[in-house]
Design a protein around this nucleic acid. Structure first.
Length: 568
RNA sequence: CGGGGUGUAGCUCAGUAUGGUUAGAGUACUUGGUUUGGGACCAAGGGGCCGAAGGUUCGAGUCCUUUCACCCCGACCA
């Protein structure tokens, strides 16, 4: 492509609302343009990158036997009613009526559609397993789209669905898909981590997220320093603490503790480590048609993990409560404890099961209990893992320490089980002629989000640094001075040679100055730029490598071979 | 969905408290010239329903009402 003919509208200034590097540089370098909130046009460079990512996904999916399909973007609302998700998704579903008044939904994901296509067509265990996928635009009317391609309302996703006769086969497929996804991200040149995820609302027996590591990621993940363990903070667990601080010595007793409403006050008052205090987090737990106040107890050194708390209570949601609401049911904020108190339901963190030497609220203003042994209620109380892991906690699989890092969720693989096949009555006959619902897996990968993720992980102050597998063009030939006939001749020759060799090459033949064209090349992020400029009087050109910023002189007659060598 | 902010040239923004000739700058674009190794310089140009609708006024980018859009913080996000 000749730069003089290419539609690549680069700008010096970033859109005023862009904050993330990927958003700023993709906009400035002429990859994307915003249309409305969460809607973007992909201009030629972005389209090329997307195609490259899609090709890699297609190749790896083909290798593991998945078949590509394409389902209608517009989906009948009836299907969503059948699965019950028209309620669950709520306003995220963009609904509209056709001329006949029938209600339709723009597909935000395609479980229903895929199950509908397969049901009554695959009816025997002999035709299982089956893995179908598509790469397609999705639409979710998010309340707050942001961060450019990272979180749009319209986005491109690869979504795959597998159908199995038994759970062992689903497990096998799940592992195969994890391996394939890892291979895709490796080929794309990304630094990533597979982490355990919360399976939450959708149910199912397990899920993993593929996280591209980047500071701007919206998810916090806990990773082990020694082994492969990694988990989303919402699902991360830890093994029992190793170095336990020295226990305070005290007989069970009630103490006057005026104005010690916080854990810090309490630990200071008794001169004990917060580990031995019991923190109460009161929340309103919301169910489908009712709600109640639940008291969550964790150690003073821990914090409540809300997703875990939701799972522990089978709630739809958890919201804050005010001191007034607590006072109404006779609770005294700052002095709430799990003993001798029946005003609200309790959930106690499993780390507190049978714990001794504790200090907790006495459910009476200005009083705490000391020397508490929770063993006395271990039979009657409800214990669950509800504490958020802390940095430095011990890995649940080895003795390594957990540390936190930020990740961009680019993939999520799920063991769905029979949630959708049951709802949609999608069944097959097993070996015994018995009707069974399909056992399903679902595998998503955000294609347009990957474009952003590459840049979040690979950029510098000057712009994009595309990895070899994602670069819209591998080589940029920059003719420094377009009025210099010799430079033009050398550039045109190399351009033709590389094109003939099948290399994706851009020829910057614009009548601009050296600095302008270099800044532009760096902003766009071509892996290599061949500079044909003032070195030519010595018979040399230079190869500029984007990620190292190195400029290496090469004899003009050797440059074609040198470039081919770099690309191989 | 709660709280806050912003809409003026393709882009980034002045101008709005106190209404008053023909609405500005930078950048980008066009033309000519100079320049040619890190987003050059000079000159001349083209480009605006001041988000939309209604109102107040002799007169509205500026004041009032309504509305739409976009952004930020939070909640939400299989």
């Amino acid at each position: 492509m000749r730069r003089t003919k290419a539609f690549i509208p680069t700008t010096k200034e970033a859109p005023s609302d862009a904050t993330l590097p990927s958003h700023i540089f993709l906009a400035r370098a002429g990859f994307i343009s915003q249309v409305a909130a969460g809607l973007y046009n992909y201009m030629p460079l972005a389209k090329r990158v997307i195609k490259k990512i899609e090709n890699i996904i297609n190749e790896e999916m083909t290798k593991v036997g998945a078949q590509e399909v394409e389902l209608s973007f517009v989906t009948p609302a009836d299907l969503w009613a059948e699965s019950g998700r028209i309620e669950k998704f709520g306003k995220e579903l963009l609904r509209f009526k056709d001329r006949k008044g029938n209600l339709f939904v723009l597909g935000p994901t395609h479980e229903e559609m895929m199950v509908d296509m397969v049901r009554n067509r695959i009816t025997s265990y002999k035709n299982l397993p089956l893995n179908l996928y598509q790469i397609k635009t999705k639409f979710r009317d998010e309340a707050r789209p942001r961060f450019g391609l990272m979180r749009g309302r319209e986005f491109i996703m690869k979504d795959g669905y597998s159908f199995h006769a038994n759970t062992q086969d689903l497990d096998r497929e799940f592992d195969a898909m994890e391996a394939a996804y890892k291979k895709i991200l490796t080929r794309l040149g990304l630094d990533f981590r597979v982490v355990e995820a919360d399976s939450g609302a959708i149910g199912g027996s397990g899920s993993k997220e593929l996280m591209v590591l980047a500071d701007s990621g919206e998810d916090t993940i806990a990773v082990c320093s020694k082994c492969e363990y990694g988990a989303n903070i919402e699902a991360a667990s830890r093994s029992a603490r190793g170095a336990i601080p020295e226990a305070p010595e005290a007989e069970f007793n009630k103490f006057l503790t005026p104005d010690t409403k916080t854990i810090d006050d309490l630990a200071e008052f008794f001169k004990v480590d917060p580990y031995y205090t019991v923190k109460c987090v009161a929340k309103r737990v919301v169910y489908e048609d009712e709600s109640e106040i639940v008291l969550f107890f964790v150690r003073g050194c821990d914090n409540l993990q809300e997703v875990k708390a939701i799972n522990a209570t089978d709630a739809l949601d958890i919201v804050d409560v005010t001191e007034e609401e607590l006072a109404e049911i006779g609770l005294v904020p700052g002095f709430i404890g799990p003993l001798d108190q029946d005003k609200a339901k309790h959930v106690i963190d499993s780390d507190l099961k049978d714990a001794k030497d504790l200090i907790c609220g006495a459910n009476e203003k200005d009083y705490h209990f000391v020397g508490v042994d929770l063993g006395v209620i271990s039979e009657v109380a409800y214990f669950a893992d509800i504490a958020e892991v802390n940095e430095g906690d011990i890995c649940p699989h080895c003795n390594g320490k957990l540390s936190f890092t930020k990740g961009i969720e680019v993939g999520h693989i799920f063991k769905l089980g029979t949630t959708y096949s049951e709802a949609l009555k999608a069944e097959f006959l097993d070996e015994n002629g018995k009707s069974q619902p399909f056992i399903m897996g679902t595998y998503g990968m955000g294609v347009s989000r990957l474009v952003a993720a590459v840049i979040e992980q690979h950029h510098d102050e000057n712009g994009c640094i595309w990895t070899p597998a994602t670069a819209p063009y591998m080589v940029n030939i920059m003719i420094s001075n377009i009025k210099d006939e010799e430079q033009v001749a050398v550039g045109e020759k190399l351009y033709k040679e590389l094109q003939d060799a099948g290399v994706e090459v851009m020829l910057d033949d614009r009548k601009e100055r050296f600095g302008f064209k270099m800044k532009d090349a760096e902003l766009i992020g071509f892996p290599y730029t061949v500079i044909i400029g003032k070195e030519l009087v010595n018979g040399n050109v230079q190869i500029y490598t984007r990620n190292t910023k190195a400029k290496d002189a090469v004899a003009k007659d050797a440059v074609f071979e040198k470039v081919m060598e770099l690309l191989s």
